[in-house]
Computed example of a mutant assay.
Amino acid sequence: MDDLERIAAEIMAYYRALDECATLRRHFRHADEEGGLWYIEAVPDRGEWIVVKQAELTAAGQLHRYSWEHLEDENGGLTDQVVDPEQDPLEAISVEEFQVVWTR
Score class of each variant (00 low, 15 high):
residue 41 E to H: 02
residue 80 D to Y: 15
residue 2 D to Y: 08
residue 66 Y to N: 02
residue 96 E to P: 00
residue 7 I to L: 14
residue 97 E to C: 05
residue 89 P to N: 05
residue 2 D to T: 07
residue 66 Y to V: 03
residue 102 W to P: 11
residue 14 Y to M: 05
residue 1 M to W: 00
residue 68 W to H: 12
residue 28 F to A: 03
residue 77 G to H: 02
residue 20 E to P: 01
residue 73 D to S: 07
residue 12 M to K: 15
residue 59 A to I: 01
residue 87 Q to W: 07
residue 54 Q to L: 15
residue 14 Y to W: 12
residue 37 L to F: 14
residue 3 D to M: 06
residue 71 L to E: 02
residue 41 E to C: 15
residue 104 R to H: 09
residue 95 V to P: 14
residue 47 G to I: 03
residue 8 A to S: 08
residue 5 E to V: 07
residue 64 H to D: 14
residue 65 R to S: 06
residue 11 I to R: 10
residue 39 Y to A: 07
residue 64 H to L: 12
residue 54 Q to V: 04
residue 71 L to I: 10
residue 78 L to T: 01
residue 38 W to G: 12
residue 47 G to K: 06
residue 42 A to W: 09
residue 52 V to Q: 03
residue 50 I to Y: 12
residue 73 D to F: 08
residue 24 L to D: 15
residue 68 W to F: 15
residue 61 G to Q: 03
residue 85 P to H: 03
residue 98 F to Q: 06
residue 13 A to W: 10
residue 60 A to T: 15
residue 102 W to C: 11
residue 45 D to L: 01
residue 40 I to W: 09
residue 45 D to C: 06
residue 65 R to K: 13
residue 19 D to R: 05
residue 7 I to R: 14
residue 1 M to N: 10
residue 31 A to H: 07
residue 99 Q to K: 10
residue 65 R to V: 04
residue 36 G to A: 11
residue 91 E to V: 06
residue 58 T to D: 04
residue 2 D to E: 10
residue 97 E to L: 07
residue 51 V to M: 07
residue 94 S to P: 08
residue 50 I to W: 13
residue 53 K to H: 14
residue 101 V to D: 13
residue 73 D to G: 04
residue 73 D to C: 06
residue 27 H to Q: 05
residue 97 E to I: 01
residue 62 Q to C: 08
residue 3 D to R: 12
residue 47 G to V: 05
residue 61 G to R: 01
residue 83 V to E: 04
residue 78 L to E: 03
residue 88 D to I: 04
residue 22 A to D: 08
residue 78 L to A: 08
residue 39 Y to Q: 05
residue 82 V to G: 00
residue 48 E to I: 11
residue 30 H to M: 11
residue 40 I to T: 11
residue 103 T to F: 14
residue 12 M to G: 10
residue 94 S to I: 02
residue 80 D to R: 13
residue 62 Q to E: 13
residue 77 G to V: 01
residue 71 L to M: 12
residue 102 W to D: 11
residue 70 H to E: 00
residue 104 R to F: 08
residue 9 A to N: 08
residue 86 E to H: 08
residue 58 T to C: 02
residue 66 Y to I: 06
residue 76 G to C: 01
residue 40 I to H: 05
residue 68 W to L: 00
residue 90 L to T: 06
residue 8 A to K: 03
residue 52 V to A: 02
residue 14 Y to E: 02
residue 5 E to P: 00
residue 17 A to M: 12
residue 70 H to A: 01
